[in-house]
Design a protein around this nucleic acid. Structure first.
Lengths: 351, 351
DNA sequence: CGACACTATGAATACGTAGTCATTCTGTCA
DNA sequence: TGACAGAATGACTACGTATTCATAGTGTCG
């Protein structure tokens, strides 16, 4: 039929398995002597076809190497079986969240389409891109997605959920760990250990998670008369933490405890302090936040707040799948508690 | 036209921004007084439309909240702008590879569709699933994809590339780090430090990367008269390494060096050894493989072979994009060298 | 035995876009 | 001025499937 020539198939006897892979349900229909409708039914609602026909179609499909075209299916059915995720391109935490989403979605026979962005400015591009695919749901991760952008998503009437993004509460359906309470719990823990001074190291001060976590720390500490200045590392990375620690080490007087807004930064702080000759927990206590796997590795053994990522992700998926309800209602905000993990970084050394 | 009713829009004046989001290029055409063809052109090849019309269409599209439908576009153009990746659901290394793919693909305006599988048995399901979406390319990651499954992919005539999977060489286009040479280099390094006995801890012995890496170690060590038995950790995880170390520690005589097949396992081995009172590098030397970020964190500072993942991924993408060439030719096998990183785990302590 | 419920199947159509071809319009050159 | 290349645009159709709607066949019951 006037194909683009290309590989002329080396004129082999057109073997079934290496046949022209443009096999459609129409071809299968012809091969098995039924209508295209019936072929479609065999692959989407098999119980509506008699066993005999079903088998005949299956055999023909196999012989021709037919594979249903999900694109066409999606166009017609308006369902893609794909969930999109808008996430930052960097960061251990987000990687682990993505992995968890991928796992749980796979269990439900959904696929994950990743839209990653390098800088906050690229978010718009990612959001524009995500809108073009008519996905069954969209996960908005990262605290650097602006409020205006969230509002834009809401109007897109496609199920979406903000993941761990306090700024989104009330604007878009959201699922978060209880950032404030979690950090407060860590602060309580420190207070009980008798600290009198403290400092907080955040990643990026404009990130809403950071703000909420800092608030949790500050309020609780203030109740016990402990001040807690904010130090900005500048990024959510190991290196940023390492450098922040170096700066901290040059101060005249070290705080009794340092609360870090995320584990990845905390690892850097820990190593940075060690490099400066400051011992943890000897000279000061240290806490993180997130509960990355590495936090429980014996090498670090960090006191932190463990997010039950599997639960958070499960809730987020529930929200996406169950949002057939009312688009007008006020968006739900699910808050999941975290669990404190005590490691050696706040264990008073017996020395 | 007889919609499914549903949200009756609360009978607001049908505002543009919250309009019925079933806006198509036909609607925009009507609104701006041009044909659907022209609207399509404005969004796919704008230079074929006069500036005046282009602007008019753009304004109308904006007003109606029109967003091109990528599904329909894909169906018609036979291009999805999406690359699929079949990867294991667990493992730091694979997470980092995925992240790198996502970043580099985003730069080229491609999206990443993730097909993750929990157990090797789920691979078939993932491969079947990936075939339905007519993706512009497929990355096959994980050494646990069988040869037969690879052959199946080849015949699918869609560009695909095996990532870090020695078994795929010659069967499917592939890109790998030079596993054998890399491990050999690490072995050389150990030999120079004067080791006389060694052991190798692999993840899963049936994985082709593991086999090739072990071969690199064994051959080089043998040349210098050093034996190197294989120990199987059972999984590519921190915990598996930790346990393997515990077992190792119970031996009568420790080897001078332990070569571990992957960093993640190596971290576990390191902590497991420490827990058993064995000091590294005091009592024995330790090497890893992969070059995960954590390897260069001061807390571990592991001697390892750093895969230049960015380069590997870039090559893999090149293969996918450039494979318009000949499907009949022998598939390319690109091997990228790694870079040895010397950390304190093989630095003879001055003590 | 006719009416009826039900199953199995097919013909026709819609999903939303992009490419082909034809047509009109503009400006240039002999 | 007429011929003609090129730009701008539109009518039509195909991409591959799922969903009506209609029709033929099968068995049940009064």
């Amino acid at each position: 039929m006037g194909g683009k020539a290309g590989a002329a198939s080396s004129s082999l006897t057109r073997n079934q398995s290496q046949a022209n892979h443009r096999v459609t349900s129409v071809d299968v229909a012809a091969e098995s002597g039924v209508s295209q409708t019936t072929v479609a039914r065999v692959f989407s609602s098999p119980d509506k076809v008699s066993p005999a026909t079903r088998e005949r179609v299956r055999v023909a499909a196999e012989r021709l190497g037919y594979v249903p075209n999900a694109i066409a299916r999606s166009l017609k059915s308006q369902r893609t079986n794909i969930v999109g995720a808008v996430v930052p391109a960097y960061g251990e935490y987000w990687q682990s969240v993505l992995a968890e989403f991928s796992r749980q979605l796979a269990e439900r026979s959904y696929q994950l389409l990743v839209f990653s962005f390098g800088t906050p400015r690229d978010v718009d591009g990612a959001l524009a891109s995500v809108a073009q695919y008519r996905l069954d749901g969209v996960v908005l991760a990262s605290a650097t997605i602006g409020q205006a952008q969230l509002v834009g998503m809401r109007s897109s009437e496609r199920p979406s959920v903000a993941f761990n993004q306090p700024a989104a509460e009330g604007v878009v359906p959201s699922v978060s760990v209880d950032n404030e309470a979690g950090m407060a719990e860590l602060a309580e823990h420190l207070v009980k250990l008798g600290i009198e001074t403290a400092a907080y190291i955040g990643g990026v001060s404009s990130a809403s998670t950071d703000q909420v976590r800092y608030r949790g720390a500050v309020q609780t500490l203030a109740e016990h008369g402990v001040a807690c200045p904010y130090i900005e590392a500048g990024a959510y990375t190991y290196d940023a933490g390492y450098k922040a620690a170096a700066q901290l080490a040059q101060r005249d007087r070290l705080p009794d405890a340092v609360m870090v807004g995320s584990d990845e930064v905390a690892f850097g702080v820990l190593d940075g302090l060690a490099n400066a000759g400051i011992s943890v927990p000897g000279d000061l206590l240290l806490t993180g936040f997130d509960g990355l796997p590495q936090a429980s590795w014996a090498g670090y053994d960090l006191t932190t707040l463990v997010q039950t990522t599997d639960v958070l992700v499960a809730r987020a998926i529930d929200v996406l799948m169950g949002s057939g309800a009312g688009p007008q209602e006020k968006p739900v905000s699910i808050v999941v508690p975290g669990a404190i993990r005590i490691g050696k970084t706040t264990r008073k050394s017996s020395a």
